[in-house]
Nucleic acid binder design. Structure first.
Length: 480
DNA sequence: TGAAATGTTGGGGCG
DNA sequence: ACGCCCCAACATTTC
């Protein structure tokens, strides 16, 4: 018997460690998931991710039952739990897919050492990213710290490795589990002390694959065909919406890449550009995972450490206004309310609210980073940290600090009719497009006529962008 | 995966 | 017909 320890690979297909566990044990693999309180109740966990996880576990269990097995779920400290389960089923070994985040690496080293002491075999496999952090290095043998050259090397390597990399693994049959193994139901969110969250995407592998197929369908106008030109339009459903599935491995990264590369064969110019743009997003994912692996200090502070001394103002009241979507800047508030309603935010909107928090409210980017982790259904330490350092200008490949988004012009550019704003801020529904991103410029008479008086029905701007822009520039100049 | 300030150019109105 | 000015449109520089 070999235990397959599921972590962020909650799927049966294209699962390297699971496939190998089944092969090596002739089907006698025990699928195990451990609910670890250190993760469930960390300050960087969201109730949304826990709920999505639980639904994905139920889906995984269902899929396993259809194959004559089931998912064993235990709650506890990982090493102690693995030891107990290994004892119960006399396991020869434990297989799992690697997770390169610092917390997971420390845990896995501890677990591996402990299990090997007990005489169990432990094997781990590459899975979360297309390439592991040490596979893509510059000519000097160092990790890339700028995205564009990284992507070039990464993309070229896909072409080099080609078919071998993209080969699909076939799933073998499962043998039934031993009867004496305890069969406990998967707990509910309430049982874990977590508030149930509404409005999440459906969890699990089947739901993820459906979404992937729909996105990569070249006949779908909202899919990858229009991705390059439309993905920044926040009111349009033009993004893949696969992040939550990718984060927990409900679908495999390699599966996404493989399907996208195959679709290139049938793609015309538009579709091809969309596919390459999306493949580039998978490269971003690998890039930020690599950064976190090679430079774990980014979780504590700036990648460029000279930016650790910036004198943030950290006004708690302004932070609360940002969190609750009442800054008076419609595009910012709409985005924050989307986050509250869906535990998800459009990528362009993440950049806008990030820039606003850091450069208009002069608040430490780590406050925003943590808040995102506490709300997002797809919150990923590597990608979230990379994104925040990017907007704050403190990171790798960062925009220079003086690139400051103007929330009004970003709104005009990427939500030209104001549909996104109106969807999430219903009190602005009647505001005409020309004022929708700067409602405070509406003449008082117009405000009265429409029944939307700024300061009464919708907040006046909490700060003046033009003023704060200058203050941010000064803050960065002095901080360096 | 910026925005704002500043510089340049060229068409058209006008005396 | 010409010079002058205005200003939109575009380009470049600066933060």
């Amino acid at each position: 018997m070999i235990i397959h320890w599921f972590r962020r690979d909650l799927r049966l297909h294209d699962n390297p460690a699971l496939a190998e566990a089944l092969r090596a044990s002739d089907g006698r693999a025990l699928p195990l998931f451990i609910l670890d309180d250190a993760i469930l109740h960390s300050r960087r966990t969201s109730a949304a991710r826990v709920c999505f996880l639980l639904e994905s576990l139920r889906a995984l269990d269902q899929a396993l039952r259809e194959r004559g097995s089931r998912l064993v779920v235990r709650r506890g400290e990982p090493l102690a739990t693995l030891r107990r389960v290994a004892m119960e089923c006399s396991a020869d070994g434990v297989f799992f897919n690697r997770d390169d985040t610092p917390f997971a690496r420390a845990r896995d080293e501890r677990v591996t050492a402990g299990l090997r002491q007990d005489g169990r075999a432990v094997r781990s496999f590459a899975d979360v990213t297309v390439f592991e952090p040490d596979e893509i290095l510059s000519g000097a043998g160092k990790p890339y710290t700028v995205y564009t050259p990284f992507r070039k090397r990464w993309r070229a390597r896909i072409a080099e490795v080609g078919d071998e990399l993209l080969r699909e693994r076939r799933l073998r049959q499962f043998a039934p589990l031993p009867d004496e193994l305890r069969d406990e139901p998967i707990p509910t969110a309430e049982e874990l002390g977590v508030t149930a969250v509404q409005g999440l995407p459906p969890g699990g592998e089947a739901a993820g694959l459906t979404r992937l197929k729909h996105f990569l369908d070249l006949g779908n106008p909202d899919g990858v065909r229009g991705y390059e030109t439309q993905r920044n339009l926040m009111a349009r459903p033009a993004t893949s919406r696969l992040s939550a599935y990718l984060h927990l491995g409900c679908i495999g990264t390699m599966r996404c890449l493989r399907d996208a590369i195959r679709a290139l064969d049938d793609a015309d110019a538009n579709a091809g550009n969309g596919l390459e743009a999306w493949i580039g997003e998978l490269a971003w994912r690998d890039f930020y995972h690599g950064i976190l692996y090679h430079f774990p200090h980014v979780l504590r502070g700036a990648f460029k450490q000279q930016y650790d001394t910036l004198a943030w103002e950290n006004d708690e009241q302004l932070f609360r206004a940002w969190c609750e979507g009442r800054t008076g800047y419609p595009i910012v508030d709409a985005a924050m309310r989307q986050l509250a309603a869906e535990s998800w935010m459009h990528n362009r909107a993440r950049m806008i609210v990030g820039s606003f928090l850091v450069k208009d409210l002069l608040i430490d980017w780590r406050w925003g980073e943590r808040f995102f982790m506490q709300r997002l259904v797809d919150g990923d330490h590597a990608a979230n940290n990379g994104g925040w350092q990017w907007v704050a200008g403190t990171g790798t490949d960062a925009q220079p600090f003086f690139r400051i988004f103007n929330p009004v012009s970003q709104g005009t550019k990427f939500d030209p009719h104001g549909d996104y704003v109106r969807q999430y801020i219903p009190e602005l529904a009647a505001v005409p497009a020309r004022y929708i991103h700067s409602p405070w410029t509406m003449p008082a008479e117009e405000q009265r006529r429409l029944g939307i008086v700024i300061g009464r029905d919708y907040p006046a701007p909490v700060v003046d962008h033009a003023v704060q822009r200058e203050r941010a520039l000064a803050l960065y100049r002095e901080g360096r």
